[in-house]
């Protein structure tokens, strides 16, 4: 269970997220939707203890992320802006992370195989393509076999095979009673994957509920999204 309780984050005079409150239930894939700059990544960074909330709190299994002992065994995360140093090999990147949380070294090979990077394990990550870096990020998230997965734009850079793989993987993951929070701005992808949807615009939650409830009365999730965030989306592009 993930809970955001009135999380506000300000950078100087700018309010990035404003009193964000919602919950993510186990056994379901929850989509976190919003236009660019709406506050998705900031919310996730606060949840994961990377940014300090100005007020409010975000909890995972009733605890702040920083209070989890060996957090990667509970939470796996893929975030833009958290990645490997280019001069380190892919396997070495995973090895130090595994060591930091006392995760068996054997998991490195397992997750590399799961994301199809076994052959590139000894390559330096600076030579990875965008898709390979994304796969390595997913491998990092899976390293501790966590109960909770938090993925920010996971299909960025993935080829069609990779997109299909992650979709079925996340469905299976939630199907085993685990918690999946998936941030994306790809509507069709989200419509195919999510059970629940949380929509954020201009730093505020504008909709939160089952996918069927959110899309009710709209031809598609995309139409529902624009109906909910229309003004905010136009603001971004104007």
């Amino acid at each position: 269970m993930i809970e955001f309780k009135g999380v506000t984050k300000r950078y100087g005079a700018k309010t990035a997220v404003d009193a964000v409150t919602f919950a993510v239930r186990p056994g379901r894939v929850t989509g976190f939707l919003g236009p660019n700059g709406a506050g998705k990544s900031t919310s996730l960074r606060v949840l994961l203890g990377l940014d300090h909330a100005t007020s409010g709190e975000a909890l995972i299994a009733g605890k702040r992320y920083r209070d989890l002992t060996f957090p990667l065994r509970t939470v796996g995360a893929l975030l833009d802006g958290a990645g490997p140093v280019p001069d380190r090999r892919g396997a070495d990147h995973l090895a130090w992370i595994a060591r930091s949380n006392r995760i068996p070294r054997s998991r490195v090979g397992e997750v590399l195989e799961a994301v199809g990077l076994t052959d590139a394990a000894r390559q330096r990550t600076g030579r990875y393509s965008l898709g390979m870096r994304q796969r390595l990020g997913i491998a990092t998230a899976l390293l501790g076999d966590p109960e909770v997965l938090i993925l920010d734009e996971p299909v960025n850079g993935l080829d069609p095979d990779g997109i299909r793989w992650i979709r079925s993987f996340l469905r299976g993951y939630a199907g085993r009673g685990r918690t999946v929070l998936l941030s994306s701005h790809l509507m069709t992808e989200m419509a195919d994957t999510a059970d629940d949807v949380v929509v954020i615009a201009n730093g505020r939650i504008v909709a939160d509920g089952a996918l069927a409830d959110i899309t009710e009365g709209h031809p598609s999730l995309e139409d529902a999204f624009f109906a909910l965030t229309g003004a905010a989306s136009k603001q971004v592009w104007s």
């Binding site: 203890g49 920083r66 990667l72 802006g81 958290a82 490997p84 140093v85 280019p86």
Partner: peptide
């Protein structure tokens, strides 16, 4: 200085949040 390249610090804090 390696810690401040390419988001390494964020990955480090995810691994050791305290």
């Amino acid at each position: 200085g390696q810690e401040f390249l390419q988001g390494q610090l964020a990955q480090s804090v995810l691994s050791v949040p305290r």
